[in-house]
Design a protein around this nucleic acid. Structure first.
Lengths: 240, 240
DNA sequence: TCGTGTTTGTTATGAGCCATAACTCAACTG
DNA sequence: CAGTTGAGTTATGGCTCATAACAAACACGA
């Protein structure tokens, strides 16, 4: 297509940089004024450009949001991964707490991005057909599942509190297993989801201001308790 | 103020009816096109009016949303209350399941309203100064707390799995207790929040499409398991 | 070195929405 | 019946998304 796709890396780099600047500007606007208030006009003004110029980089607002969503998944995944990496290997209980705290902290620091990926989907926003966002979501979730795998390999994974697995759930687990998206037993797959729900619920309620009537110390204590309950129910080693 | 506030009930009724029609129309638009896409223009068109006429009833978009938020709290509270009322009195386990299922079902059937009250707050939306939305939120939450009270009075409330209560949490509990917003011990207050989080987390993830890769049966089974775990941890009787 | 085609940006333009202002008409009051 | 209040209208301004048409900067080959 291009005259010589190999010989013009300068432009490509410049283009990538511009795309990045647009996304960063959009994020900044999102942070201070909310997702809906991200206007091409404002992005352009901040960047010293005219609004129509942005259409050279994103076909429309939805395409920009798609990119932001994908980045958000990426950021969440990396944040959790980094938190886990800083825990001494082998300490599964600490890894669980670290990962969960990272999830919670990220949601608190970036409520807009959190809402973007885990809140109400944008109206008539269609995920890209290539499934790239689904894939990014999967990678973020993999952080959770790998925790169980690690515990299993270390012999620290006990039986979950609920042993029975409904056939429909078992089927889902097996499908995931065959796609290599998950590598634990159906009952621990179930336990994983049962651990995710309280983590997400607490995080989401807190990030959306529904725990504002409690002070930080109370919320922290409550969250730790929630993590202990979840670990206990899932068969993970229970944090201190 | 009015010439004779007693003698003109017709107008007031007409006005109330119009306000209600506006809200219903807004809800309908919200349901099919998302919260953000609720335009005065569209509401007016559906109602066979001109857009500026709506300003007779709501000063601006935010005021309309305030009303919708308040209604949503009301609707959620009523839905849960109704579900509980249909359970034979005395069966706390069934009441917990009924209430939780109602919470979940409502979120699924009215995702926009659910997002409105429990999702990301609207940008620069300020709750009315009279605290009416906070109060409405409290009433909705009271459905949960009254469950614990009922269990307590029936002697069906066991100790929660976590007995230690952080001083900060205890303080919050006592404050709530003195305001008569809660009538259980601090440790059960804590347990209540620990039960709410998984309920809300599962509900929220499901309502926002993050469990779409599971079929209904699997989700139902998973949800029931979640409720059992939560009941068990909170000291409530565990559902079948 | 110069000309060609691509990329990136601009100005101009249209359609749509929020919100206000000024005005008309109906309803209720005494 | 005359005055007041309230509901609804048209007219208007400012802002946004998006496209079209045009100008400048750049990369490359002859």
């Amino acid at each position: 297509m291009s005259p010589s796709p190999r010989t013009a890396p300068r432009r490509e780099r410049a283009r990538a940089a511009t795309i990045d600047e647009i996304k960063q500007t959009a994020l900044a606007l999102m942070r201070e004024r909310g997702t809906v208030e991200v206007r091409f006009t404002d992005i352009a003004r901040v960047m010293d450009m005219t609004p129509p110029a942005l259409y050279r980089y994103f076909a429309d607002r939805d395409e920009l949001f798609s990119a932001l969503i994908q980045d958000a998944y990426e950021a969440l995944g990396e944040t959790v991964a980094k938190a886990r990496a800083e825990v001494p290997p082998g300490d599964v209980a600490a890894a669980w707490v670290a990962a969960a705290q990272a999830y919670r902290r990220w949601a608190h620091e970036e409520p807009q991005q959190f809402a973007l990926i885990l809140g109400m989907p944008l109206p008539d926003y269609a995920a890209p057909a290539d499934g790239s966002t689904t894939e990014a979501a999967g990678r973020a979730m993999a952080q959770l599942s790998s925790l169980f795998v690690e515990a299993l390999h270390l012999g620290q994974l006990g039986p979950p509190r609920i042993r029975e697995v409904h056939p429909a759930v078992e089927l889902c687990a097996r499908v995931k297993h065959e796609k290599h998206e998950i590598e634990v037993s159906p009952e621990h797959f179930q336990a994983m989801l049962h651990a995710w729900a309280p983590l997400h619920g607490f995080t989401s309620l807190e990030a959306n201001g529904h725990f504002d009537w409690m002070d930080q110390a109370a919320r922290d204590a409550l969250f730790l308790g929630q993590l202990r309950l979840a670990a206990e129910a899932a068969g993970l080693p229970v944090p201190s």
